[in-house]
Design a protein around this nucleic acid. Structure first.
Lengths: 222, 222
DNA sequence: ACCTGAACACCGTTCAAGT
DNA sequence: ACCTGAACACCGTTCAAGT
């Protein structure tokens, strides 16, 4: 699998690797990693021109393969989108975990950090966010990996709520219900921003995100 | 109401023009109300099979006109969707106002009622909701009617917040910011439900909606 | 095993032409 | 004034065929 790959048709770019030894350790697109390449191309297309600007044919062309090639790696367009969404949930959970880490001993602070991280991820990766929460996979059960990744992100929120309850800073009620209250608030703000519903106000987002998370924690308090 | 007609499954069908009398009293589709008919057809199609199952050609066929006819009434597909969204915001504001009416003298109760009405509208009219908050009209400024209708619904929430402040039951802070907190919470719950993110939990929605709105009001309280 | 080319049944949109 | 028919440049998806 040398570097003399196929001849992509339109403007594409060769992943620089080569050098000495030909250790194709990096993402090898045309040979060996079409799946990865299509995922990246899909995200780039969505990021550039909106969620329904994504076209299987367009992604294939961008990567330099025929329009039929993607079907080697994804059952259909929905499967591609589900895979993108799954990666999004994973990245979001990772970002949330990272930003929550410093608040290991302060569950209320952690809850706040998780909420802010949620909004931050959504607004920094609107394309991913839209795919994650779009009606893309009509049948979620058909994509178990997606479902699992989504639950992982939500679980961070629910866990923080439970820790808050154990620490006596959140009222004792069904933690699932309270977690949903928190989730709704940060998800709502994220969705409003990402869908452009806030207009000018979205320019100064952080104070708003802080107001929303603060209000959540106030509402949850004993 | 009154859509006793329009059943052209596949082939187009001529709307029979009454056997005797010819009193085109009902919504006269082909002559005089194609616009209205297209709006109804669009909503029906979205309701039946999802937001991107809507097709200009499909709507035209459903109504019994040629594929080019819609362009007499809408500049393009986006304009049709913007019109659907505008009607949705109007209907939502109407429903919110109706459910808030009994709480004229109790601003906190009114705020709660508005929130519940918001969620109820979203879950009872998921198709409308998706179009209202989709990325459909990329440029919102290009559809002033839509923008105005959306602000009207939001204004009900903001007004209730201000009345709550005047009554001393909500802390005095920028009412716009607090209104956004309330909006985020009910919008987030609505979006999660409509997008199927809650799975089984959405079966018993009302307790959840009540928990969310209660938590909002608790957070806003002095 | 992985990809291509051609094909099918769709789209949104435009435009000359009909009535 | 309002609509039709045909056309163009796209789609998602399938399938026989190439290497």
């Amino acid at each position: 699998m040398g570097d003399d790959a196929a001849r992509p048709m339109t403007r594409r770019r060769r992943r620089r690797r080569s050098g000495a030894g030909g250790r194709r350790r990096r993402t090898r697109y045309h040979h060996g990693n079409l799946r990865r390449a299509l995922l990246d191309a899909a995200l780039a297309l969505i990021e550039r021109a909106g969620a329904d600007a994504l076209t299987l044919r367009g992604a294939a062309k961008r990567v330099g393969v025929s329009q039929a090639a993607p079907y080697r790696h994804f059952r259909n367009k929905e499967a591609l989108l589900a895979a993108v969404a799954e990666e999004g949930f994973r990245a979001m959970a990772e970002a949330m975990g990272r930003q929550a880490a410093p608040h290991r001993d302060d569950p209320a602070g952690r809850l706040r950090a998780l909420g802010l991280a949620y909004v931050e991820f959504a607004t920094r990766h609107p394309a991913h966010f839209r795919v994650m929460f779009g009606r893309v996979p009509a049948d979620r059960a058909a994509h178990p990996g997606l479902q699992k990744a989504a639950k992982e992100a939500y679980g961070l929120l629910a866990g923080a709520i439970r820790d808050c309850q154990a620490a006596g800073v959140v009222r004792s009620r069904d933690p699932e219900e309270l977690a949903l209250c928190a989730w709704s608030a940060v998800h709502g703000l994220s969705a409003l921003v990402v869908d452009g519903q806030l207009g000018e106000r979205a320019r100064q987002l952080e104070p708003l995100a802080r107001a929303v998370t603060d209000n959540v924690v106030r509402g949850l308090a004993v």
